[in-house]
Amino acid sequence: MNTKVLVAPSPHVHSGDSIQKNMYGVVFAMLPALVFSFVYFGMGAIIVTLTAVASCYLFEFLISKYLLKKVPTITDGSALITGILLAFNVPANLPIWIILIGALVAIGIGKMTFGGLGNNVFNPALVGRVFLLISFPVQMTSWPKPLGFDTAYFDAQTGATPLALIKEGLKKGEPLSQLMHDVPGNMDLLMGNMGGSMGEVAGIALLLGLAYMLFKKIITWHIPVAVLGTVAVFSGILHMSNPEAYAGPLFHILTGGLLLGAIFMATDYVTSPMSNKGMIIYGIGIGLLTVIIRVFGAYPEGVSFAILIMNAFVPLINVYVKPKRFGEKRK
């Protein structure tokens, strides 16, 4: 039977690119940040990551097999990304049962309800994260301090994130210049020497991941640059208008998971626009919303919300922002 020639419409060759290659490329790019989080948060980070990944895989398998009655597609690596991102977005000492709920929400509500990979409107990991943040505010905001490799899981020392410190301080009416002494310096922020969720602390590792993904052409520069640029410009304007009330751009970029969001979560294929122009609009939207939420909102941290809100606009962006067509008249 195998001797018959194949007939198909052109093209007859393929680049060899696959969903798996892209997904595992993203996972590879996340490894530096993962290693940093293991070093900083020790055993807790390992337990949280393993639980999140395993439960994401499990839920995706169960839901696609028994609810959607499809052949499970867990080998494509998307559940792995969701699991790691979910772990990156929670404190390293989060109880296991809360992680399980987070994974169920992320996969069950964030992804499979829409029909699985490729159809979800919102970034699944962020859906899980925000659900947990709203449902378990205490556990979700008691950040363990990065004390180097520590085998303790539950009794780690906890502390606030730099953004939360500033927000609390400003509420009390303390001047910013005073508060800035209490938070780590820029170099510490870059190296991850601050309180925060597992994956967000090590800026340098995240940037390494970005460089890898750009090099491998897994993502394009448009979204990260638009997000970070907008945050820098917007917070810079605010800072210049009143340095005592608003923190500087570098501080905003290095804290609160902005790098994590801009590099790994806003760039999620499924929930970001298709055209380059659209990506830039989407990135600017995320940047603006992030600063607005951080500076004027009730939460100290706004990246997750900003990305989720902009996710909702993606279908609209896709409809109205078209790529430039060949031969189109330039104005």
Binding site: K4, V5, L6, V7, A8, P9
Partner: peptide, 13 residues
Amino acid sequence: KTNQYDGAPSCTI
């Protein structure tokens, strides 16, 4: 059969 169709599964195509 004399050959094997390998394109998109659509009669029209």
